[in-house]
């Protein structure tokens, strides 16, 4: 699966380096924990929670251990969605803590830094990959 694949074309909000940075943060968080971390940056269509849950469901077979981070910079909203397995590893409280840290960075205009820090916090909170 190509990480950091462009959902659509044209007008890029991030530099190539920033795209790589977020992709790397996604894959290292996923690799460390065995969960599937995915980040969506875009406008929310309708209710952000519904949209985020729809995106989470679109992860398909990955959705059970998927963690979707939805960042809507235009609406200044953030949503983290966990699946069946990932919610056991990642409590809502841990998600809220990561969300707080991310929104603090976003409010300062640092989108990439906030996403990377948030992913790192989520990965640390969910711990190492559970065996068996």
């Amino acid at each position: 699966m190509p990480s950091g694949s462009r959902f659509m074309t044209s007008d890029e909000p991030f530099t190539d380096g920033q795209v790589r940075e977020i992709s790397r943060a996604c894959s290292s968080a996923s690799g460390e924990t065995g969960l599937h971390f995915s980040v969506y940056v875009g406008a929310a269509e309708g209710d952000i929670r519904d949209h985020a849950e729809r995106l989470h469901a679109a992860l398909g077979p990955m959705s059970s251990r998927g963690v979707l981070v939805f960042v809507a910079p235009g609406d200044r909203q953030l949503e983290i969605v966990t699946g069946k397995q990932s919610s056991h590893r990642l409590t809502d409280r841990a998600c809220a803590l990561a969300a707080l840290s991310m929104t603090t960075a976003f409010a300062g205009g640092d989108l990439v830094g906030g996403v990377v820090t948030g992913l790192r916090m989520l990965a640390e909170a969910s711990g190492r990959q559970l065996t068996a």
């Binding site: 950091g4 659509m8 795209v19 875009g42 992860l59 235009g74």
Partner: peptide, 22 residues
């Protein structure tokens, strides 16, 4: 540099999905 994100300004970029489905 790319235009820096400023809170409160409209976000007029296409969505980006990292580690999403193919």
């Amino acid at each position: 540099n790319r235009p820096r994100y400023r809170p409160g300004r409209p976000w007029k970029h296409d969505p980006l999905w990292f580690n999403g489905p193919d």
